[in-house]
Design a protein around this nucleic acid. Structure first.
Length: 592
RNA sequence: GCGCCCGUAGCUCAACCGGAUAGAGCACCGGCCUUCUAAGCCGGGGGUCGCAAGUUCGAGUCUUGCCGGGCGCACCA
């Protein structure tokens, strides 16, 4: 409908151009049509007259008069008015608005699907948390956002693949392996002071216990040997005066080295045990949270396959690398980064950045038109260097799009919760799901714009879960189902009755019809702008419309034609409630 | 110090490419169940859109400065 009005206006501008009112032809794509916010402004409005006033050297209202006079007749339009500073308001005939009910019912779950994306291939990478522990509530937001966005993009005609990048190489994983091993030694009776920089969560003890169960005591070493000649650890508390000046990072690195040295080939067993169990746990966790990936891509495979080496060589051959202080640096400042970055450390190990360059190159080579990464906003400073690397590899940096998700700050009542994986003090996504429920958790996350800070109050989410808007939307769906059930259980046969949407003149009915009509463009915008939260707002509005209607009017009335018409309207509403909730991967229960 | 993000009702958040009188939920006040689920509906109070300039027919939205908050500025990931 929007396009139809835009076309009418475009034709009118052509006419005015020919008549000499407008100095030059108007690009029809620049004509904007808005949905009127207020009923008194009709159904659609255009600011065209105000936008062109300057160019035409005429007053907006005069120009609006001329445009309206030049408009061709259209059977869908009831009347056209000029209002305010020069808005052109379009009032549509009921008959043309009401047609949307039939459209929704015949298209069903396909209503709103578009080809906006034209089949463009997108690789959406999200969560990608280090497999060093269970996912916490911060990861949950990225998981909900990424999975909903993937569905939205798919519905808007993009070809989307979802990927989890498993960071299974590097120092953090060594810290994990060493932490497990130390807990394993403790479980075997060793007395030791657990390193400050180690992973302290209880799950580490569980992993250690499993290790002892599967491999017995073959990894045992005396703690005296393990801790001999290690750099001092940082004090475990502020008033620990015995070792005030220790370095926790040097200490843990020393322990990692000792672990590798003492365990030899068994170190890989410990390392793999931690990774395998935790990755499996993450996979299950996300799957239960309705997050489904196309691929799980392991960072270590890039090292093994030589992709890291190839990326390094390619950068080096192009003259973008140099050596300094024993390390290899990428001259990212050439491409707008604030400083150059190390890719190969002094000790010969590639940095995380080096493997990430290889990873992004590899993703581009897999033939995607667009790489979309969803990162925690704390990584925003990392964007320029990755884009710099892509440029240096002679690729278009715009093919990488990074969406930043602000962390959800978790509160338990008034108390802010820590979310450090290292300290082991965090609320897991699983705990959150179990306490709040999957549907409510997803909806709650998705209610807010992803780049907006968000407060997640656990106490509120738990104790007042009935106040959660998701129930409000689901209830609307359940109510419709209930009405339809009662109709089916009755003796009435409406099949032979044909509906007449002209009868749907109540304000609540007109409101719902307008909402149905808005759905396709809402989906298109939500997908294009990566804003699934607009869908949650829409669904609340749609549910509100239904609840108001429900309270104001009886659907199962004696008048068969009216009854049939109303039933078809609420079936259309039901269709979109299901579609919308499905795009958010939230359930639509038939009764509550 | 430099860079990125954010300041909207008491609280949590919206506002389509700059549009008409800035909207919801929670909380508060007052109504509505002999009728399809009251997990609902209807009405009411509540605002210096952080502050100040600028751009223009028009600014919560764009520009600049300031104030306040978050994050980043590793041979960690």
């Amino acid at each position: 409908m929007k396009n139809r009005i835009a076309q009418l206006l475009a034709n009118a501008t052509d006419k005015l151009h020919q008549d000499g009112v407008l100095p030059e032809p108007i690009d029809s794509s620049s004509i904007t049509i808005e949905r009127a916010r207020d009923n008194s402004h009709g159904d659609f409005a255009s600011n065209l007259a105000m936008a062109l006033a300057k160019k035409a050297k005429r007053k907006p209202r005069d120009l609006a008069e001329a445009l309206v006079a030049a408009l061709a007749e259209d059977e869908a339009i009831e009347k056209v008015e000029i209002a305010g500073p020069g808005f052109i308001n379009f009032f549509l005939k009921l008959a043309s608005l009401n047609q949307v009910i039939g459209k929704v019912l015949s298209a069903g779950s396909e209503y709103g699907r578009s080809n906006t994306g034209k089949g463009q291939r997108i690789l959406l990478e999200y969560v990608s948390a280090n497999p060093t522990g269970p996912l916490h509530v911060g990861h949950g937001r990225g998981a909900a956002y990424g999975s909903a966005l993937a569905k939205l993009l798919g519905f808007a005609g993009y070809q989307v693949e979802q990927e989890y990048y498993v960071n299974d190489a590097g120092r953090q994983m060594d810290i994990l392996a060493t932490s497990i091993w130390l807990r394993y030694l403790e479980a075997g009776g060793a007395e030791l002071t657990f390193p400050r920089a180690g992973y302290k969560g209880d799950y580490i003890r569980d992993l250690a216990a499993q290790l002892r169960q599967q491999h017995g005591d073959q990894f045992d070493h005396s703690s005296a040997v393990v801790f001999a000649d290690q750099p001092e650890d940082e004090a475990h508390s502020d008033n620990d005066s015995e070792n005030p000046s220790g370095d926790k990072e040097a200490h843990i690195d020393g322990l990692i080295g000792r672990a590798k040295q003492l365990l030899q080939e068994n170190y890989a067993t410990v390392h793999a045990h931690g990774k395998d169990v935790i990755v499996a746990d993450i996979r299950q966790d996300l799957s239960e949270f309705k997050v489904e990936y196309t691929t799980w891509f392991e960072e270590s495979s890039l090292v093994i396959s030589g992709a890291v080496k190839r990326a390094f060589d390619q950068l080096n051959d192009a003259g973008h690398l140099y050596q300094r202080d024993g390390a290899w640096w990428f001259r990212s400042t050439t491409f707008g980064d604030q400083k150059d970055r190390v890719v190969i450390r002094e000790n010969g190990e590639p940095t995380y950045f080096a493997t990430d360059i290889a990873y992004h190159l590899q993703k581009l080579e897999r033939g995607f038109d667009q790489l979309t990464d969803i990162w925690g906003s704390d990584h925003h400073g990392y964007v320029p260097r990755v884009k710099a690397a892509i440029s240096a590899l002679n690729q278009d940096p715009d093919r990488l799009e990074v969406l930043l998700v602000q962390f959800a700050v978790l509160y338990r009542g008034d108390q802010k919760m820590s979310m450090s994986t290292r300290s082991g003090e965090f609320v897991t996504l699983r705990e959150l799901r179990n306490e709040v429920g999957i549907d409510a958790t997803r909806f709650f996350y998705l209610m807010h714009k992803s780049d907006q800070h968000m407060e997640f109050d656990l106490e509120l989410a738990k104790s007042n879960s009935n106040d959660n808007p998701v129930f409000y939307v689901q209830y609307a769906h359940a109510r419709i189902c209930s009405v339809l059930r009662q109709l089916a259980d009755s003796d009435r046969k409406l099949d032979s009755v044909s509906s007449n949407y002209e009868l749907l003149v109540e304000p609540q009915e007109q409101n719902l019809i307008a909402l149905l009509d808005r759905f396709p463009e809402l989906i298109e915008n939500a997908a294009r702008k990566h804003e699934p939260h607009t869908l949650t707002y829409y669904l609340r509005e749609l549910a509100n419309g239904l609840h108001s209607y429900y309270n104001a009017h009886q659907f199962l009335v004696d008048d068969e034609v009216l009854c049939c018409s109303r039933i078809e309207l609420i079936r259309a509403v039901q269709t979109l409630l299901v579609s919308g909730l499905d795009l958010l991967a939230v359930g639509a229960p038939e009764s509550m």
